[in-house]
């Protein structure tokens, strides 16, 4: 499924790198621990987190993730957005919790 389709179904808001919305997603990974994401997420996953600081961009880019969904109405910091544009990392936001977001994605991808 394309990231854009998922974003539409979940009413996600785009915070950076709109071009990345055309990318395909291979699944999702939910975690707020950065080294855990680097160890256990899979290439092409969309990453669900409440972290908003600049280091999330490097994690997503180095691990080859499809994008980041920041949950709980949190907004990425301005320097995070700037870095994400430079590194071509798509960041989306939602008012829903990680639990709700992961649950919805699980349902969408397994039907």
């Amino acid at each position: 499924m394309k990231l854009s389709e998922l974003a539409e179904k979940l009413s996600l808001k785009i915070a950076s790198h709109t071009e990345g919305m055309n990318g395909n997603i291979t699944g999702a990974y939910s975690s707020d621990l950065l080294s855990d994401v680097m160890a256990n997420s899979k290439v092409g996953n969309v990453w669900i987190t409440l972290q908003t600081h600049i280091n999330i961009v490097a994690v997503a880019s180095l691990k080859g993730l499809a994008g980041i969904i920041i949950v709980g109405n949190r907004q990425p910091q301005p320097e995070t957005i700037e870095k994400a544009e430079a590194e071509k990392v798509t960041i989306l936001t939602t008012s829903h919790t990680a639990y709700e977001t992961a649950g919805q994605i699980y349902q969408i991808l397994s039907t």
Binding site: D32, L33, L34, S35, D36, M38, A39, T49, Q51, H53, N55, I56
Partner: peptide, 15 residues
């Protein structure tokens, strides 16, 4: 609070 400190960095390097 930034999400570092899982104690997984060195194991990740080794892996």
């Amino acid at each position: 609070e930034m999400g570092w400190g899982a104690g997984m960095g060195l194991p990740n390097m080794k892996r």
